[in-house]
Design a protein around this nucleic acid. Structure first.
Lengths: 196, 196
DNA sequence: CCAAAAACATACTAATTAGTATGTTTTTTA
DNA sequence: TAAAAAACATACTAATTAGTATGTTTTTGG
């Protein structure tokens, strides 16, 4: 890896940590420079402005890890009830990249940026749409295998499940405890069973 | 109503509109002064600082409307399946105080303030807890009337429903369309039916 | 190895921010 | 009605912000 690429990745990673823990708007560039030990000249060599860095974080950091943890498990071809539950269990309880007190990085970005930056919204919408499509495909596949009732509306279920995830992340952030995750997972399991 | 009280309420209402539409941190006091036509001296006579005003918005504006639209309908004593669905329909589709493109005021505050102001989090936690309790009470009442299965875990269901609401607000904000609300409501109805 | 481009460093600016100091006006109360 | 308190007005400050101007150093390709 080239030195310049290391600098860029260093900025993206440290900046993400700061933004994830305390918000995009409250994370100043000076603060990013202080934690990365990168100078302002170097920063603005790699990024035209702060927002371009934010978009880069979404596309170059969030997206890959998102694909690995949110999308990949759904495509394994097994029983949707089990697969979806396991995915949720992983991203809520096991994944150490995501912290309960900080919520969901994508949701945080959405909340903060949606009112005044369409680039962020577009990038986040892509992630959201990809997740939805993956859940739908998983459920449709489950119908073929007779694991899911044929009358189940896959798109409705997908939206419903995604809502649950985004929401419980909010509640977790508010209560600052994974306890609500466990409660949510129990009811999710019961809900998923009704799709058989 | 005394003139001073009018000034205070004017600040709270206009400030809320600004904050709801574009965020707490990006709404400057100068901007609030410009839209309210109130001077800085008057503002700081009524509020010690910006955060105190934020808390006042939650307690004096959000809380009352929240109680009227989120809590009151749940206490009417009817069939939980119908009551909960109607409540969700009202707050998502009919309520003109809440706008899809701005999301949920409480969720916005949570996302923005949780990392660095415990007063906000506490106030919002109170709202959240009150809603949860109301849903639980509604379901328990439904058990008595044999409208809800006796083996249904009311607290689990409450958390699950609340998650769905918070989450679909996020998704609505991201997609900027009430279409997702309709999809969510359809699946919510099916889910609620399984509690019978 | 040496020019040219890439990568980084330093010092600055102009705008915006929350909050304060110090007034004046209005309302209340005795 | 006059003194006192409440309510509001104006001008300022000190800190922070994103971004720029103008350099120097490092890397790379011929």
């Amino acid at each position: 890896m080239k030195k310049a690429a290391i600098t860029r990745l260093n900025i993206l990673q440290k900046a993400f940590e700061l933004i994830y823990s305390k918000g995009y708007l409250t994370t100043s560039i000076d603060e990013i420079l202080a934690t990365t030990h990168v100078t302002k000249g170097a920063f603005y060599y790699h990024f035209k402005n702060k927002d371009e860095m934010g978009i880069a974080i979404i596309n170059e950091l969030l997206k890959p890890t998102f694909e690995a943890t949110f999308l990949k498990p759904l495509a394994s071809g097994g029983d949707p009830v089990q697969i979806i539950y396991d995915m949720m269990q992983e991203i809520l309880m096991d994944n150490e990249f995501l912290k309960v007190e900080y919520g969901c990085p994508a949701a945080n970005f959405t909340q903060e940026m949606a009112p005044w930056n369409t680039d962020f919204t577009k990038a986040l919408n892509d992630l959201s749409a990809a997740w939805k499509d993956a859940i739908i495909a998983c459920i449709e596949n489950g119908k073929k295998d007779k694991n899911i009732r044929p009358d189940v509306k896959a798109d409705q279920v997908a939206i419903f499940i995604m809502s649950g995830y985004w929401g419980i992340r909010n509640i977790g952030k508010l209560s600052n405890s994974k306890t609500v995750y466990l409660v949510f997972l129990k009811q999710l399991k019961e809900y998923l069973q009704t799709l058989r």
